[in-house]
Design a protein around this nucleic acid. Sequence first.
DNA 1: TTGATTTGGAAACGATCATTCCCTAATTAG
DNA 2: CTAATTAGGGAATGATCGTTTCCAAATCAA
Lengths: 207, 207
Amino acid sequence: MTVATLTPEAKTRSRGRPREFDMDAALDAALRVFSERGYHAASISELTEAMGLASGSIYKAFKDKRGIFLAAFTHYRKLGRRRLEAMIASAKTGREKVFQMVMYYTELSYGEAGRKGCLVVGGANDFALLDEEAAAHVVTAFAADEKLMADLIRTGQADGTIPKTVDPDAAALAFLCFTKGLRVIGKTGRSREEMMSATEAAMKLVT
Amino acid sequence: MTVATLTPEAKTRSRGRPREFDMDAALDAALRVFSERGYHAASISELTEAMGLASGSIYKAFKDKRGIFLAAFTHYRKLGRRRLEAMIASAKTGREKVFQMVMYYTELSYGEAGRKGCLVVGGANDFALLDEEAAAHVVTAFAADEKLMADLIRTGQADGTIPKTVDPDAAALAFLCFTKGLRVIGKTGRSREEMMSATEAAMKLVT
DNA sequence: TTGATTTGGAAACGATCATTCCCTAATTAG
DNA sequence: CTAATTAGGGAATGATCGTTTCCAAATCAA
């Protein structure tokens, strides 16, 4: 028992009282508040209530309101990326992968989920001219999507399911605009059928 | 001078002290503030400064902050619709009209104008779950765009510049998503060349 | 054990917010 | 003219905001 390496605990303990709340659950709650209300309309009291924490505890765990948002934003991106990559992996051809990526956003853009909106799209609106660093995170998120889509298009061109005449970079940016637009229009509460029809039409971008 | 009909003034005078400020100029200033900062981050003091009015005067002319936004929103839509219809009228064929409509939004989606963003897209983000009536105005604005685009596509099908195989409603919704997405991505500061390449790619929607 | 350190939580803080009040100025109605 | 009405502007108001402070509780280091 005196040998330190005997302890099988994976996580390194830090000094002081250990955190009692579940960080992932707290960030889930925070991103829900930020998505539904937007950054500026979300108040600390709404966040404390949703996260189940007192304001003092929040300010211990995060630097300030902006810090909560950035943590929730990173959490949101990580979750989303995982789901997106799972959908892409389920498709065999490049063209099908492109379709699955667009479908990922389509399924988020109708009904209740659609109304809640996207934290990245919301962040673009809330921070573009007000917070250079936060805006840079949004740029990074969009760039990752754009690059992934361009890669999928090139995959499709390599396996013959997408014509070589398609400009991968131009089509990827067009898809980026389309999917982010889906999220905007989704805030107005459209049906699955409508959004699906638009997505099917958008697949002409890779013909 | 005693005959009332001699007065050539077009506008009917109301009782009391007449308004001194120019309403259109004030709304121009207000929509600039709301576009750049979003509804919730725009403060009354910022609005008073930009509009050149004291807070008391603003609350005489508008009911409240929401009333300022709604008036600016209506003003913004009126101006935009006029410019959009002018661009459409300059095109001859249906397909060219579709292209000009997409170009209208493309030209607003890069550089400084792009960063300022769209009041309707911003409104969708700021009000969707917080203000039913304001959200309805956003829905109306999107619906008008969608319908206009569908009409242009049908015009193109009638004059033979757009294939009959295109579903006008599905393609119109896809274009709506694309153009609103342009405005979102435009907030991150892209170049004219990039946005143009996406727009050219998007024209595949009507092939 | 003792001390250092960190979290949890409630209350307190100053700043800022949207809004109202009040007084003066300018106009119309009679 | 006088009375009624509306606009302009600035000070005052109450509420709420984000943040800090303070103290008790829980852990680690020694």
